[in-house]
Design a protein around this nucleic acid. Structure first.
Lengths: 234, 234
DNA sequence: CGGGACATTGAAATTACTCAACTAAGGTGG
DNA sequence: CCACCTTAGTTGAGTAATTTCAATGTCCCG
């Protein structure tokens, strides 16, 4: 439906930050960066706008320049699952770019968001011209695949409580070592969707973990890890 | 532990079939195929031998030439999850090749199996030299990622019964249109592991589906789909 | 300050797992 | 080629985990 076309800025030439941020390109020389930037288009989306949705046919790579994007899928049952949240420098759309011709997931701007677009044909040209970029792309895919398979295994073999504990522990290391307190990067509703459970269960399990002395809920979104080792043995 | 080194054949120069089977390479000219084949080593594994296991550091891509290989993961809880089964032409080991330096999963020969190995350095050289191969690799990753994310979503949002129904339906279309009967490609024990449930539940759900008239169990491994539409509405 | 979404809580219901006992099948060596 | 042994599969009963539904509380943003 509304795909944001109304409020797009087309600058033709976009900010360098768009491209130079991305691991995929950040090893390139200035000259090569300029070349990509020339093929890049900048588009803005308002909070809650859909960037693409399942069934759309895709012909571009989307790089987040500013803002936050939520990637989710709908199951056969109609339930929604949050797949990941993209921050500046992250990209999406690759699926449809390289294999399937239509998107299987939904991308939604969580806040006002600026995105850089690269057309499939331009990108492929680039990949053939600079093979080192392909290697980066492969590495990125490899990491995502690894993460996705790990997630699948967790869903199929761990109970909700364990999945939550592992999630909290991993959130903690992302904050840097020594940190013991952090802010959840998403609402508990989204967290429930991400971890394959319900908000009610999240709420109850957080309470359990607090009662058992593993964590402390400072506020709804602020969590303190009191006993990391204990948490990991849950 | 036993990684098969005792019974390996090293032919130095392996069968063309090894390489030409793989989608990744099958578009290449004979001359280029020869070049890859030169960098390829053939290794054999006996039934039940481990080809690699989590924690091994990897430096090769494994292409199945003959046989069948089971890729599985162990969860933090110690439970095993079957990730996929590889047949001739499929490959694995790419994870450790491009990003992580150690395997996160286990690969086990299900029957006597012949594998072609390509060393990381040779492969990377090749990818840089023939960019079209990279594009194929990217496409392959993209497909796998898509499949893995779909699986994750199913685990997190569908009940076991639905996952089984979807699995059966998909097994059916792989057999070709018009087919109505097929043989399960793995044991029900493995199927349970693959679908994130237990053999007991598989057994019971199969019975349910049969009682409700959606399928018929000809033998333990032979399944007839009686009412595909009904099955998909489960 | 009010409204709407998010979050929490309780109670009931569902779903799947575990454990244990039993049966069936398949492959191996005699 | 058959008997045997091992592994796979089934069935039942009890239990654990999580979801669902409904009611209520709370936060935050405009």
């Amino acid at each position: 439906m509304d795909k944001g076309n109304i409020h797009h800025h087309h600058t033709g030439k976009s900010h360098k930050s768009c491209v130079s941020l991305v691991p995929m390109f950040n090893h390139l020389e200035d000259e090569q960066l300029d070349e990509i930037m020339g093929a890049t288009q900048s588009v803005s989306y308002k909070k809650n706008e859909l960037i693409y949705h399942a069934g759309d046919e895709s012909d571009s790579l989307y790089i987040i320049n500013k803002g936050k994007v939520r990637i989710y899928r709908l199951a056969e049952s109609g339930k929604e699952q949050l797949v990941r949240i993209l921050n500046p420098g992250d990209f999406t759309g690759e699926m449809a770019l390289f294999s399937e011709s239509t998107h299987e997931s939904y991308a939604e701007a969580m806040v006002n968001t600026k995105i850089c677009l690269i057309k499939r044909s331009d990108l492929q040209e680039f990949l053939v011209k600079y093979p080192s970029v392909s290697l980066k792309v492969i590495a990125e895919f490899s990491n995502r695949l690894e993460a996705s398979e790990k997630q699948t295994t967790r869903f199929s073999t761990e109970k909700v409580e364990t999945r939550i504990a592992l999630y909290l522990a991993e959130s903690l290391d992302q904050e840097g070592t020594g940190t013991i307190e952090f802010t959840l990067s998403m609402s508990k509703k989204d967290l429930a969707s991400y971890l394959g459970t319900t908000p009610e269960t999240i709420s109850r399990k957080f309470n359990d973990l607090e009662e058992r002395g593993y964590i402390k809920q400072i506020t709804h979104k602020r969590i303190k890890i009191v006993d990391l080792d204990g948490l990991l043995l849950v």
